[in-house]
């Protein structure tokens, strides 16, 4: 599963659902919802590919787009992102993911619970480390990030209905980015 479904969260959820004996279509649908956010991410990334990128180069680069690789690539200061750069980034993440799975299994028994827990936070520390400097640099980044946090926070804490984390991220991203696009209309970045 690690080799062809390159998406961390979906793998864990999928593995868990296999364990619980959940029906196949439900697992497939959950995977789809969980990973639909990458539709927005590649929509954004596609605009920054050089004009001469072929369709097959784009299709290959798309395989490795995850939250993490997208965060790193989209925060790159270069206006255009060469396909070779994306291959390199995605390949590094892919091998690290595979190696990390093996290392994780071996280290899992050595590391204490407290240390394991704090390392879970590491991914978010990386996201914060990528986002905060951008918010310092560009006003639309502040608007987009704060609005989407407000929306996802509101969706998470509201008591009226249950919502999967996949749809939460998708709707918060759309709203946050839309508000920033409306408010920061006449600024050239």
């Amino acid at each position: 599963m690690s080799l062809i479904v390159f998406a961390g969260a979906a793998q864990f959820v999928g593995a868990g659902m296999f364990g619980m004996g959940v029906g196949g279509w439900e697992i497939v649908l959950t995977t789809f919802v969980l990973n639909f956010r990458h539709f927005l991410m590649t929509s954004s990334l596609s605009r920054r590919l050089p004009d001469n990128t072929t369709k097959s180069q784009s299709a290959l680069a798309a395989f490795g787009v995850t939250d993490e690789t997208f965060a790193v690539a989209s925060m790159s200061r270069d206006e255009k992102l060469a396909p070779s750069y994306l291959y390199g980034l995605n390949f590094t993440a892919y091998t690290a993911w595979a190696a990390g799975t093996v290392a994780g299994v071996m280290a899992g028994s050595i590391l204490g619970d407290t240390l394991k827990q704090s390392l879970t936070f590491g991914l978010y520390a990386l996201f914060i480390g990528l986002l905060v400097p951008e918010m310092k640099r560009a006003k639309p980044a502040v608007t987009a990030a704060l609005c989407s946090m407000a929306v996802s926070g509101a969706l998470y804490f509201q008591p009226f209905f249950k919502m999967g984390s996949g749809w939460m991220i998708v709707s918060a991203t759309v709203v946050g980015s839309f508000i920033a696009a409306v408010l920061h209309g006449d600024e050239n970045e």
């Binding site: 927005l40 991410m41 954004s44 990030a145 946050g176």
Partner: peptide
């Protein structure tokens, strides 16, 4: 612009909550 601001918005939503 909407597409350009997606990185910031999606990171925001991933971080919080």
């Amino acid at each position: 612009r909407f597409l350009r601001f997606i990185p910031y918005a999606s990171l925001g939503a991933l971080i919080f909550p």
